[in-house]
Design a protein around this nucleic acid. Structure first.
Lengths: 200, 200
DNA sequence: TCCACCATGTAACTGGTTACATGATTAC
DNA sequence: GTAATCATGTAACCAGTTACATGGTGGA
């Protein structure tokens, strides 16, 4: 049995959105074009082939439905296989590489994790993320301290901007963990321990 | 006269590095692999074709030189045309789009601007960058305030992380401007005005 | 009638990915 | 002699870009 062909980031974004709500290509394009998910391409030349690829892997299934006016809209729904694949992606342990690439993919995963896997998983994800961010920023710090004198001013500043942005991401994870714990406690106010794993 | 074919981001990174110091493909790969410029691909399948493209546009010129041992190293040097092209890229006014894409390209430009165009240009660039960051963050803030209640918690947090990272970039521009002005004053301590354009 | 928008596609191109391939030089 | 590393490439593949093409629908 050969390995399933990989799903691109855009593919996962589509998969996640369709998981949340069956949609046609146009709906999805609008989401990318009009909401804060604008970093993903909304061009038809990206979306439609991506949808077809997902369908050819049986991760989604599309059918023309004649609801809402009589325009032909091909509505895609996620399949069991697609949901499993999405879940597998969401549950993947975070790697240093993911963090180094600026955390784009991680943020996409996070945005889906809360809704699909629940607050507990979101909190666990954030803790993992925070740990890796801490390690990576101190690594960059060390590098900066060692190299600073050998670097041109602009290069040094550019590097510092990177460090700062990782640090701000770290702070965000703290904030997000707190927010999620509050949210979870509001849902079921009884239990004393807020979530699995040590203190915040 | 038809428009010159575009240069990719990797292309500009190579152009800038070669401008700083004539290098062979291997040198450049090492830079991407070992320094903080690691976000650019160091794979030969990216570098060598990119170098060839730059050469085919006469932006760089490579020749095998038998210095330092007798290995065949094809050393690339920037041409007048290449330097002009690089300059044109560095001097391009910043657009909102550049900021929205996360500022990757802008940071690359900044890293070269200081060395190639001098501190004055670097400061002007940072001021422009700061202005756009300010506008964009407040735009995102407005969007967040309007949409927050309609968004799932994880989506909202993801958006907030974006806002935070733009804000931290804004803070960084402040810091970088101050640092550059100090640096400039150290170079020529006489003049009272630190750089063209209003107050810091 | 005509415009704006809904809705789906396709074709050519391009730059990067992974993986493979080759050979020279140096250090042990 | 042989392993590591210097050094340059190439080929297959793939996802995304830009641009073009088509036609239905609803409202002015």
């Amino acid at each position: 049995m050969r390995r399933a062909p990989p799903v691109s980031l855009l593919g996962y974004a589509l998969l996640g959105l369709i998981h949340g709500k069956p949609s046609c290509g146009y709906d999805l394009r609008k989401i990318f074009a009009e909401t804060a998910m604008g970093n993903y391409s909304s061009s038809p030349g990206a979306i439609y082939p991506a949808l077809e690829r997902l369908q050819s892997q049986s991760l989604i299934r599309g059918a023309v439905e004649d609801s809402a006016g009589l325009r032909r809209r091909r509505i895609y729904r996620i399949t069991t296989k697609g949901a499993a694949r999405l879940r597998e992606w969401l549950e993947r342990p975070i790697e240093k590489n993911d963090v180094m690439r600026g955390g784009q993919e991680l943020m996409l995963r996070f945005a889906f994790i809360g809704d699909i896997l629940g607050p507990g998983a979101a909190i666990a994800f954030l803790r993992q993320f925070r740990a890796l961010l801490g390690a990576y920023t101190s690594e960059l710090d060390t590098y900066l301290r060692q190299q600073a004198e050998r670097m041109p001013l602009s290069g040094r500043l550019a590097l510092e901007s990177g460090i700062r942005s990782y640090r701000s991401l770290y702070d965000w994870t703290q904030y997000a963990i707190r927010t999620y714990i509050k949210f979870e406690n509001k849902l079921r106010p009884r239990p004393a321990r807020s979530a699995e794993g040590g203190p915040v």
